[in-house]
């Protein structure tokens, strides 16, 4: 029913692609991150909640059609439905059913309920295509509340010492998750314009995200002492952050688990929090689906597929653009988006 092509995952009877990376006619999109929702497709099909952000990122002119979670619709005889993936707001797994055969494409996912994304729902299927960004047993996450309380503590102690706390967080995903969960009684949270733009859209959708926009004017005049600033990684270390006076940076990402990566990214203070499933998350997600056939993509695909085969699954690798350096099983580090 599904074929892996150089444009991406292709549903043969339905004649559509899922998260394709080259231009196609009909693209079913799991979520609005740029490595999944690319520009240039003639028609987009996605979860309703994801549409405003996709239009913001890809242009308001795109032709897009949205469905609710769990609502099924048919494309050329293939029954399609979206199910929450728990990765970010509006992220979905795609379920495909054709002549009694069921496939699920996971997109990116995490199992833990982060309090803002629609929580992950396991979907039974015959064949499961899973991501594997953190598909190694060294990646095991602490419960969100532990990490959030560590971040709160860091922020609090900075605030007491008159230091501004600056966190590098992706504008779609991590930023909302932090803003939703951090302890706002410690101080004010400010957000970089790139994040505020996303929040403006999400607020219209009903998400209660505290306003903290830093205008050019504010940047010059405001005293930020004791507050926390959320900024996309690219803004950190630029002239922009220097305006805050004495500040300390932290990076929040699953990759922060590994010392050499912290070092490479020059991240002294790294909090380990990811929007992807950890090792145990991947394993239990696969178990939940009841699938016999597993395809692995996006991450440590070769290694994780090999592990699954030893666990008696029929497992293979989906080659994607993002596992280009995969010849020896070592892949380039994916963004933890």
């Amino acid at each position: 029913m599904v074929r892996f092509t150089d444009k991406g995952i292709y549903c043969i009877p339905g004649d559509f692609y899922i998260d394709p990376w080259r231009r196609v006619d009909k693209a079913v999109i799991t979520h609005a991150h740029s490595d999944h929702a690319r520009s240039g497709h003639s028609q987009y099909i996605t979860v309703k909640e994801s549409i405003p952000i996709m239009k913001f990122r890809l242009g308001s002119f795109i032709k897009v059609c949205g469905y609710s979670y769990g609502e099924s619709f048919t494309i050329r005889g293939v029954k399609v439905s979206f199910h929450p993936a728990g990765h970010i707001i509006g992220s979905a797994q795609v379920r495909l059913e054709y002549k009694g055969e069921i496939w699920v494409v996971s997109g990116d996912y995490k199992l833990e309920n982060d309090g803002i994304s629609e929580p992950f729902e396991p979907v039974k299927c015959h064949t499961f295509i899973t991501e594997s960004t953190f598909g190694l047993p060294i990646f095991r996450w602490q419960p969100q509340q532990n990490v959030i309380s560590d971040i709160n503590q860091w922020w609090k102690s900075n605030a007491e010492n008159g230091i501004v706390s600056v966190i590098a967080a992706y504008s779609l995903g991590k930023a909302q998750r932090l803003l939703y969960n951090l302890d706002l009684s410690i101080g004010q949270i400010y957000t970089h314009a790139a994040i505020e733009n996303i929040h403006n859209i999400l607020r219209l959708q009903g998400y209660k995200l505290v306003e903290g926009h830093i205008s050019e004017n504010k940047l010059k005049t405001q005293n930020f002492t004791g507050s926390l600033v959320l900024a996309p990684p690219a803004a950190i270390g630029s002239a922009w952050t220097e305006k805050f006076g004495i500040f300390e940076e932290a990076t929040v990402s699953g990759w922060m688990a590994v010392k050499s990566i912290r070092k490479k990214r020059n991240a002294t203070r790294g909090f380990v929090l990811s929007d992807h499933a950890d090792w145990e998350g991947l394993n239990s997600a696969i178990q939940f689906t009841g699938a016999d056939k597993i395809y692995v993509t996006h991450g440590y695909s070769e290694i994780y597929a090999k592990f699954l085969r030893e666990e008696r699954y029929d497992a293979d690798v989906v080659k994607t653009e993002f596992s280009g350096d995969d010849e020896s099983g070592l892949i380039s580090e994916r963004m933890d988006e």
Binding site: I138, R140, V258, S260, F307
Partner: peptide
């Protein structure tokens, strides 16, 4: 064991690999 060894390649440090696992 091969999965351990591969993970060790990523961290480059046995103490850390074990700590994480």
């Amino acid at each position: 064991i091969w999965l351990y060894d591969f993970s060790h390649q990523i961290t480059g440090d046995h103490a850390e690999t074990i700590g994480l696992m």
